[in-house]
Amino acid sequence: MSENVSVNATNGVTTTEDGVVVLPKSVVNKAMWRHLITLQWSWNYERMQALGYLYSMLPVINAVYTTKDERITAMKRHLSFYNTNPYIGSPAIFGATVALEAQKEAEVVDSLKVGLMGPLAGIGDTIIGTLLKPIVSVLAAGLVLGNTGLEWLAPVLMILASVVAMATMFPQYWTGYRQGINLAREVSAGGNVSQFVELATIVGLVVIGGFIPSILGTTTGLTYTQTVVLNGKAGTQTVPVQATLDGIIPFFIPILLVAFAYWLIRGLKLNTVWALIILVVVGFVGSLPALQIFK
């Protein structure tokens, strides 16, 4: 190390020639693992991920600030409200704020957290909620319910997908840490975020459109009778409604069921619990052997 680099003997924090504070690798790693393993352990209605964020930042706070008063101020700052997607988004935000907290840029850190948690939650929730989870869930469930003989593969697929998603948390953190403030500029500059969410939505909708009939196979057992003339003799014939429906549009009952459930949620604005109860009651009554509306 050159003479121009000062070393704080007690905590290993160094300062370069141009005044940039460099944290020891062990502190940066410790902060990363705390964020990765425990961010939401103390999730609560009031300030959501705030305490987890502070816990992850504590190694940095203790390394950078030497007086008790400074540490108290820093701890109180990080106890304010924070919530974003913990898997895609938060590692990058956290990495950037670790780098900036080391420079004692308190105001920049606070505004970065507030400014980025919204947009990145939008990206993270879309990737996971609209793309990753539905695609993996339907593929996996299809392996089980479709009698493919490969049902053991389903949970393996799910665990693998989640491990792959977890693996992206490391580069997110290190990119955030190295880019620091640049990251904030990139995200807040861009129509990139909304364009990405739009593309993900489009892909998601095509997939969902195909997955609905692949999973839902409900049919109807209803029949109607019609008069037919056979060999000059009039008679009656029982016709299954399902055969007629299949001739017009396949998977008609599944479309009807999803539309009905969608109407319960969006039209009647019912919450999940009530929508589920109503669907179960309608489904159960409709599938009684005496009625056979559903089969």
Binding site: G129, T130, P134, A141, T201, G204, L205, I208, F211, I212, I215, L216, G217, T218, P254, L257, V258, A259, F260, A261, Y262, L264, I265, R266, T272, A275, L276, L279, V280, G283, F284, S287, L288, P289, F294, K295
Partner: peptide
């Protein structure tokens, strides 16, 4: 028997909830 048919219908709600987010 009715419970079984109802069970097969449950994913309709899952799809509807997914669509309601989009």
């Amino acid at each position: 028997a009715s419970l079984k048919t109802t069970g097969h219908m449950l994913p309709a709600l899952g799809f509807a909830l997914l669509l309601s987010m989009l």
